[in-house]
C-alpha cells in the first residue's frame, strides 16, 4: 500500500507557505515525525495540567480555578504585607501550617477540578479514542495523575513562595526561612500526591455530572470532622486517650497530612493537646501515605481496564 498508485495527493508540502492557499489543495499525506507514546503522554500531561487552571478552555472554565487560586494566595499576601509593615522577626504562619489553615479551599479546588480531568472522558466516552492510539492505559493514568498532583502542587506551593519572598524582603533569617520553606514544599508535595489520588479515584468512580464534586467534598470533610471530634473527646479523657489521638489521625485524609508533617517535617501539631504521633504510629502514617498513592494508581488502572472500548 505504500506505493499505492491511487494516491494522487502524495506530495509532502508541509511548508508553512503552502498552508496559506487554502483553496483546492488535494489530500496531502503525512511523512513527518511520529513521536510515539512518550510524547503523547507528555502532551496529555501538559494539556491536563493547563486544564487544571482552565487554560486552553473557555473563559467560564477559568473562573472557578482562578478564583480559588486567588483566595489561596490572599492570606499569604496579607501576612507578608503585615509582617513587612510592622517589622516582625518571625512570620505569623508556619510554611507547613499554611495548607492545613486553608484546607477547605484546597478541598474545593480538588472537588472542582478532579472531575473535570477524568469524568469528562468517561462520561462522553472519549476514552476509547485514546486507547485506539499509541498511548496506553498506563500512560493515560500516569499523565492524568501527575497532572492533577502538579496542579495541586502549584496551587499549594505558590502561596509558600509568596511567604518566603516576604520573609526575605522583611530580612528574616535566611537559613531558617529557606529550611522551613523546603520542609513546607515537601509537605505540600506529599499532600498533592495523596489528594490527587483520592480526588481522581472518587471522580473516576462517579462519572455522573455533579456527583463527583459532592463525593470528593464528602470524602474530605466527613471523616475529617468525625476524626477531630473523636480525637477531642479522647484527648479530654487523658491517659490512654492522649496516645489514641495520634492513631486516630490516620482515619481521615486531612488529619493524615497533619500527623505526617508533625511527625516527619517538624510542623507544629494541629491535634488536640498538640499531640505528635508516636514512632509506631508515625510508621503507619508513612505506610498509609505510600499505600494511598499506590492504591489510587491501582484503582485508576483497574477503572480504565473496563473503560477500554
Amino acid at each position: 500500500m505504500q506505493a499505492d498508485p491511487t494516491h494522487p495527493g502524495g506530495g509532502t508540502s508541509d511548508t508553512p507557505g503552502h498552508a496559506a492557499s487554502i483553496h483546492n489543495i488535494g489530500y496531502r499525506s503525512y511523512e513527518g515525525a511520529r513521536l510515539g507514546r512518550g510524547y503523547a503522554r507528555r502532551s496529555l500531561f501538559a494539556q491536563s495540567l493547563r486544564g487544571g487552571y482552565g487554560l486552553g478552555r473557555s473563559a467560564r472554565s477559568k473562573v472557578t480555578p482562578m478564583l480559588l487560586f486567588g483566595i489561596m494566595c490572599v492570606p499569604a499576601l496579607v501576612v507578608v504585607a503585615v509582617a513587612i509593615a510592622t517589622g516582625v522577626d518571625e512570620l505569623p504562619v508556619d510554611y507547613r501550617a499554611y495548607a492545613s489553615f486553608l484546607a477547605p479551599v484546597i478541598g474545593l479546588y480538588l472537588a472542582a477540578m478532579a472531575p473535570q480531568s477524568v469524568s469528562r472522558d468517561l462520561r462522553f466516552r472519549t476514552v476509547p479514542l485514546y486507547f485506539s492510539r499509541p498511548i496506553e492505559r498506563v500512560d493515560y493514568v500516569l499523565a492524568k495523575y501527575a497532572a492533577m498532583a502538579a496542579a495541586l502542587f502549584v496551587f499549594t506551593a505558590v502561596p509558600l513562595l509568596v511567604l518566603y519572598a516576604g520573609a526575605l524582603l522583611g530580612e528574616l533569617d535566611f537559613a531558617e526561612q529557606t529550611r522551613d520553606l523546603a520542609l513546607g514544599l515537601v509537605s505540600v508535595a506529599v499532600l498533592s500526591l495523596v489528594y490527587a489520588g483520592i480526588g481522581l479515584v472518587v471522580a473516576a468512580l462517579t462519572p455522573r455530572r455533579g456527583f463527583g464534586v459532592a463525593a470528593i467534598i464528602a470524602v474530605l470533610t466527613i471523616p475529617y470532622f468525625a476524626v477531630t471530634t473523636v480525637q477531642f473527646i479522647a484527648s479530654e479523657s487523658g491517659g490512654d486517650g492522649t496516645a489514641a489521638v495520634g492513631w486516630l489521625g490516620l482515619a481521615s485524609p486531612g488529619t493524615l497530612m497533619s500527623g505526617f508533617q508533625a511527625k516527619f517535617l517538624g510542623a507544629p501539631s494541629d491535634f488536640p493537646g498538640r499531640v505528635v504521633p508516636s514512632d509506631a504510629a508515625g510508621l503507619c502514617y508513612l505506610l498509609l501515605v505510600l499505600a494511598l498513592v499506590a492504591g489510587s494508581y491501582a484503582v485508576l488502572m483497574a477503572r480504565y481496564r473496563k473503560a477500554g472500548l
Binding site: 508541509d14 498552508a19 489543495i25 489530500y27 496531502r28 503525512y30 513527518g32 515525525a33 511520529r34 513521536l35 510515539g36 507514546r37 510524547y39 503523547a40 502532551s43 496529555l44 494539556q47 479514542l129 485514546y130 492510539r133 499509541p134 498511548i135
Partner: peptide, 19 residues
C-alpha cells in the same frame, strides 16, 4: 489534541487538523 495523542508534533497536528 487527538492528533498529538497519535504522536504528531504540535505544528503538524495543527496543520493536519485544518486540512
Amino acid at each position: 489534541h487527538m492528533a498529538r495523542m497519535s504522536g504528531l508534533p504540535p505544528t503538524a497536528a495543527r496543520e493536519r487538523t485544518a486540512d
